[in-house]
Amino acid sequence: MQLLFTGFGIGAIYALVALGFVLLIRAAAVVNFGQGEFAMLGAYLMVIGFNVLALPYWLSIILSVLLMAAFGVVFAATTYWPLRHRGGLPVIISTIGASIFLENLVLVLYGPEAAQIDGLFDAPGIQVGPVFMDSQYLSIIVVAALLVALQYAVFEKTLLGKKLQATSQDKEMASLLGIPVATMILITFAYSSALGGIAGILVAPILFVSTGMAGLIALKAFAANIIGGYGSIPGAILGGLSLGIVETLGAAYISVPYKDAFAFLMLLIFLLVRPQGLFGERIAEKA
């Protein structure tokens, strides 16, 4: 039971980061390998706001998320925009470059020491029968659920959401219909960056803040993405959750040192047996 709970909590983190991946894949057909660094930057902004400038906790969160959204636009303008007509690969490489740049920039500006952020709640967690529920894991699960609900509401129920969807489905058609495609893509980058920032702020109390904190998480979130179905929103969520649970159980019952291997083994199995993922039906259409 304990393992299921932590697996679920870790899975929710993967799902949150995977969500950021999916949005960009859908809106701009970009696989953004800087997604993990978004989380890292969000966490560092939080460190600066809360620990260094001593702002109130909630204000630091709001400021960090807003700054991350603004940063998403800058990221899009520098990393994606100049290369947008060159196809997928140059943009992917450009995001990898940006992620290495960001990691080292923070290293130079902040230094290599890890920092610590307080959790949302003072209480370490609650004991339910034999299971200890860490309050931060609970917050992650709740926030992830809220964000998914919010995202669903925006995408399905608002005009903005419909425009974003139209852009992601067919850019040319969308622009013919008078939808400002460029603005829509910028909004997606801003949202995806803010989402990454939120993920970073949420995991920081558990993993602490360091420049390399998000590397492995981003990689696993990407795997979650493929397991769930490339470009599928419910797929990203289920993929993330199942990945978290599988690796935690695998570590407990088979081998701890090979924990990371279970995640990628699951990815390989899916690529071989069900390459379209849990929810994927769009692969054929894309190919």
Binding site: L3, G212, T248, Y258, K259
Partner: peptide, 17 residues
């Protein structure tokens, strides 16, 4: 004797062992 790979997000299996 319990090994773990560097940079883990979660040590629950180690603790339970």
């Amino acid at each position: 004797e319990q090994g773990y790979a560097n940079q883990q997000a979660d040590f629950t299996p180690v603790v339970l062992a």
